[in-house]
């Protein structure tokens, strides 16, 4: 059990090292990477914006209810902004990313494996890690922080929509308290988290797709594993990073 787990970690580590050696593709084929940023990022925008709005609205409602009990509804802006920037934005985006972009990556790569396209590239002396995997991996890493930023903006708008427009929190207090209390460190925490999540989710997706059993069932399994492993990994990394940031 432990032995097989260690072996798997070793396999992923070797795969990652081979992949990192191909990251020069950013310079040699920037168009391929940009295309993948579009593929992972722009194509996930609708779901990210929709979910960001709802999460923000729920935050507005719950936050208002909670803060009202202490008579400090004016702090709603701070609560919503910190909650989104530090925690909900990166985590929810990563979970959505795993479900939307991660599965698409894993099944696409898995199908390329199943239809011999990756082997054909190797036979043409073209490394599929450079041509196929590296641009997708890098595209995912770049796309994640961008998506998180969009998610946060829409989320704060949603919280404002409910808190200020519906529940009657003072507009000035909402924004000025937020401006006063949120520090650069809070924003940085969110950025660091989103980059780490992007790294983990993209790595899991391309690894699972690349190593999929070349059958219909194998590709299906790879997609499922991508979602499950990405989600668990995201929450685990989130805890570790949160602890690290608070420990400073």
């Amino acid at each position: 059990m432990i032995e097989s787990a260690l072996r798997n970690i070793g396999r992923v580590a070797i795969f990652l090292l081979r992949l990192l050696r191909q990251t020069g593709v950013v310079f040699t084929e920037p168009r391929a990477v940009i295309h993948q940023i579009y593929n992972c990022g722009a194509r996930s925008l609708v779901i990210i914006m929709l979910c960001g709005l709802f999460v923000g609205m729920v935050l507005g409602l719950q936050g208002f209810d909670l803060l009202q009990r202490f008579g400090s509804e004016d702090a709603l802006g701070v609560a919503a902004a910190l909650g989104l920037l530090k925690e909900l934005g990166p985590v929810v985006t990563a979970l959505l990313f795993a479900g939307r972009a991660g599965t698409a990556l894993a099944s696409e790569i898995g199908l390329m494996r199943a239809t011999d396209q990756l082997t054909a590239m190797e036979m043409m002396a073209v490394d599929p890690l450079r041509k196929v995997i590296a641009p997708r991996f890098l595209g995912g890493i770049v796309a994640m922080p961008l998506l998180v930023a969009v998610f946060n903006v829409i989320g704060i708008f949603g919280a404002q929509l409910i808190g200020v427009q519906l529940m009657g929190v003072d507009t000035g207090a909402f924004w000025s308290q937020m401006q006063g209390a949120v520090e650069l460190g809070d924003v940085n925490e969110g950025i660091v988290k989103s980059v780490c999540f992007g790294f983990a989710c993209s790595l899991v997706a391309v690894y699972e797709g690349y190593h999929a059993t070349p059958t219909a069932a194998g590709v299906g399994l790879a997609t499922t594993r991508t979602v499950v492993i990405s989600s668990v990994l995201t929450l685990l990394i989130d805890y570790i990073l949160t602890a690290a940031f608070l420990g400073r």
């Binding site: 390329m112 239809t115 011999d116 396209q117 082997t119 054909a120 590239m121």
Partner: peptide, 8 residues
């Protein structure tokens, strides 16, 4: 390749 293995 048996199935051609064209890049789709």
């Amino acid at each position: 390749f048996q199935n051609g293995a064209l890049l789709t």
